[in-house]
Computed example of a mutant assay.
Amino acid sequence: MIVSGLCFVGVTVTVKLLHGRVPAAESAFLRYLLGLVYLIPMWKALTGLRMTRRQWRLSALRGGAQTLGVICWFFAMSRIPLAEVTAMNYLTPIYVTVMAVFVLGERLAVRRILAIVAALGGALLILRPGFRELDPGHFAMLATSMMFAISYLIAKIITDELSPAIALALLSISVTLGLFPFALAVWVWPSWSDLAILMATATFATGGHYAMVLAFARAPVTVTQPVTFLQLVWSIIIGALFFAEPVDPYVVAGGLVIIGSVLFITLREAMLKRRVTPSGPETKF
């Protein structure tokens, strides 16, 4: 999980290195397009796949939600500090918990409601509306977390019928196709160095997901969950050292409040053996 977290921070760092030279939609498209090389070993399984109409619809809906989320995430990365992107991304499990009530029929106990309220308070602490000028990147991150939550909930449904590996491969393909028209609308020819950065982004993302799967297979969520929050620490350190981003105590405090809320919900669901909330950033990229 430590390696996984470092890989996901590597994703954010490499995107930040683009400095907006490549539009957000195009950056996202190229990241997914270059990442398709890692699906080559699965080609036989994909060509022999037979899916029902319902599975196709769910996969398409998931791809659409992930597409919008990824565009918003790449846009936010070009606008706001690393620490704020990382902290606000932890809202995804909170959105999942709320949506699960309407989509999966989950029931919200009082403790979980209080944890959700606390997490939203943490988000307000980060954003501080009325006390500072909000950037469009902040609103983009709110949309990112929402879209990733929708993607995760659909994944929970579809992986009951398809293997996680196939579901992930279908997501990569559908997002690549979904991003293509958005990328075409703002296309600029990237330099070779920018392409190398985006290839590194794809590699970090694939490595992060693979390391996470290994961790989940070998340890319970109560062990893996706390480690995911080291990403906030890495983001703060890297943002300060390499991008001259000042450490904002409100962002740190708000991030810790959200982290505490997510941790409480996850541990509570693990004890009840009915966990729906994702254990951190497994909905990303």
Rank of each mutant, 00 (worst) to 15 (best):
125 L>F: 02
232 L>E: 00
168 L>K: 13
44 K>N: 07
196 A>L: 15
169 A>R: 00
33 L>H: 00
134 L>V: 15
77 M>R: 00
146 M>Q: 08
108 L>A: 15
68 L>G: 11
91 L>D: 09
283 T>I: 11
20 G>Q: 06
64 G>M: 15
248 D>H: 03
38 Y>C: 14
130 G>S: 06
115 A>H: 08
178 G>P: 10
189 W>Y: 10
171 L>G: 02
180 F>P: 01
58 L>D: 14
245 E>G: 01
158 I>K: 07
271 M>E: 09
67 T>Q: 09
92 T>D: 09
207 G>D: 09
203 T>M: 10
98 V>F: 11
208 G>I: 05
283 T>S: 12
149 A>K: 04
100 A>W: 10
73 W>G: 06
252 V>D: 05
238 I>S: 02
185 A>I: 01
216 F>I: 15
176 T>Y: 01
212 M>R: 10
177 L>W: 11
77 M>H: 04
252 V>K: 03
192 W>A: 12
30 L>N: 05
228 T>E: 09
90 Y>D: 00
30 L>F: 05
225 Q>I: 09
258 I>H: 03
273 K>S: 03
111 R>D: 11
75 F>E: 12
29 F>H: 05
195 L>T: 04
257 V>T: 06
217 A>G: 10
179 L>I: 03
7 C>D: 09
174 S>E: 05
207 G>I: 11
205 A>Q: 12
62 R>Y: 13
214 L>F: 07
125 L>Y: 04
251 V>P: 02
11 V>D: 00
273 K>V: 02
41 P>R: 04
162 L>M: 08
232 L>M: 05
55 Q>L: 04
67 T>W: 09
119 A>R: 09
30 L>V: 13
103 V>C: 04
165 A>P: 07
139 F>R: 01
254 G>P: 00
16 K>Q: 04
186 V>N: 12
175 V>N: 03
186 V>S: 13
44 K>E: 08
244 A>N: 09
16 K>F: 04
184 L>Q: 10
184 L>M: 13
144 T>Y: 10
285 F>C: 01
176 T>P: 02
284 K>A: 13
127 L>R: 13
110 V>D: 01
114 L>C: 14
234 W>C: 07
245 E>C: 01
232 L>F: 02
181 P>L: 03
67 T>E: 11
127 L>P: 14
237 I>V: 14
112 R>N: 15
276 V>G: 05
12 T>I: 08
4 S>P: 14
48 G>N: 07
138 H>N: 14
100 A>H: 07
229 F>E: 12
222 T>Y: 11
283 T>M: 13
230 L>M: 13
13 V>N: 14
75 F>G: 11
216 F>Y: 15
282 E>Y: 06
83 A>V: 06
281 P>R: 06
282 E>V: 12
264 F>M: 04
87 A>C: 04
250 Y>T: 08
139 F>K: 00
191 S>I: 03
21 R>C: 01
132 R>N: 13
167 A>K: 08
270 A>Q: 03
6 L>F: 15
223 V>C: 12
84 E>V: 08
163 S>L: 08
285 F>N: 03
111 R>I: 09
147 M>E: 02
99 M>K: 10
16 K>P: 03
261 S>A: 14
31 R>F: 01
42 M>G: 15
248 D>L: 00
103 V>P: 02
41 P>T: 04
80 I>N: 10
274 R>V: 05
88 M>Q: 06
120 L>V: 12
